[in-house]
């Protein structure tokens, strides 16, 4: 908690300075709206804002779940099949470098302006990050422990759940943290291309309507859900790996 106070003070100072700047210079709302104006826009449009946020959250979280589940299954397959790993894994690594967000227009063309194109893009992003990290994580299991399991006649399933998964947990959470923000980015990016609702749509729409205060309010909301998603994964990490709390603090 003590670590947060200086940062919170700085944030408060920035907001106060911003408000003061707008009041003193009389800069147009069309250029930079004051924090009070943004707050007013949030209160005024709260029903719409909540609705658009929920749409984006639904897209991002569905994609996040789907992408991570498929990635974990694929990582296990890669760990146990040398053929699959040799053929497909370099492609996955290459895919990681491809700007996946750039395929959003293709997905929107295929699946229309509905929720599905956003879910799929979010899933793609989460998938590539988690797959690479999970393959590394599953391989990071202690060789001695694996040998011991083998000697004790443990089944592959036991080997996987008792040794490899616990070893992979820190790797998994690293990718989940990245994936949480990436899923929201994906949802918003695909909404820019073509959507009927969602925060990305709202941001695009308010800019077109020159409703600058509502635009900033929508962007602030996107920022808050980005942070909240990240925070949620950090909390889950502490719960799942209490022995690593110290290490978590650092990231």
């Amino acid at each position: 908690m003590r670590r947060v106070i200086p940062a919170a003070l700085l944030l408060a100072a920035v907001l106060a300075g911003w408000e003061l700047y707008v009041t003193l210079t009389g800069v147009s709302v069309l250029v930079v709206p004051p924090p009070s104006g943004i707050a007013a826009a949030i209160v005024e449009n709260r029903a719409d804002l909540v609705h658009q946020t929920l749409v984006t959250l639904a897209e991002a979280s569905l994609g996040f779940l789907l992408g991570n589940l498929v990635a974990i299954v694929c990582a296990v397959a890669f760990t146990y099949s040398g053929l699959l790993r040799a053929g497909a894994y370099p492609l996955v690594l290459a895919m990681q470098a491809v700007p996946l967000v750039a395929i959003a227009p293709i997905l929107v063309l295929w699946l229309g302006p509905g929720i599905l194109s956003k879910v799929l893009l979010a899933a793609f992003l989460a998938y590539t990050v988690t797959l690479v990290n999970m393959v590394r994580g599953l391989a990071s299991a202690d060789a001695g422990t694996l040998e011991l399991m083998h000697t004790l006649n443990a089944s592959r399933w036991q080997q996987l759940t008792r040794v490899r998964f616990p070893a992979a947990l820190p790797y998994l959470f690293t990718s989940l943290k990245l994936g949480a923000s990436a899923a929201i980015v994906a949802a918003i990016a695909a909404e820019y291309i073509g959507a009927l609702e969602g925060l990305g749509y709202l941001i695009h729409d308010t800019r077109a309507r020159l409703d600058n205060e509502y635009l900033w309010a929508a962007v602030a909301t996107a920022a808050v859900i980005g942070l909240a998603a990240f925070g949620l994964v950090v909390l889950a990490e502490r719960w799942a790996m209490p022995w690593r709390r110290e290490a978590v603090e650092e990231t």
Partner: peptide
């Protein structure tokens, strides 16, 4: 460091692409 670094860490979790329209306005 104590004042700025936590803010910078928090900023990293933000969806940057959301602020592009604001930058375009500015």
């Amino acid at each position: 460091r104590t004042a700025v670094y936590p803010l910078l860490l928090a900023l990293r979790a933000l969806p940057f692409i959301a602020i592009i329209p604001i930058l375009v306005v500015l």
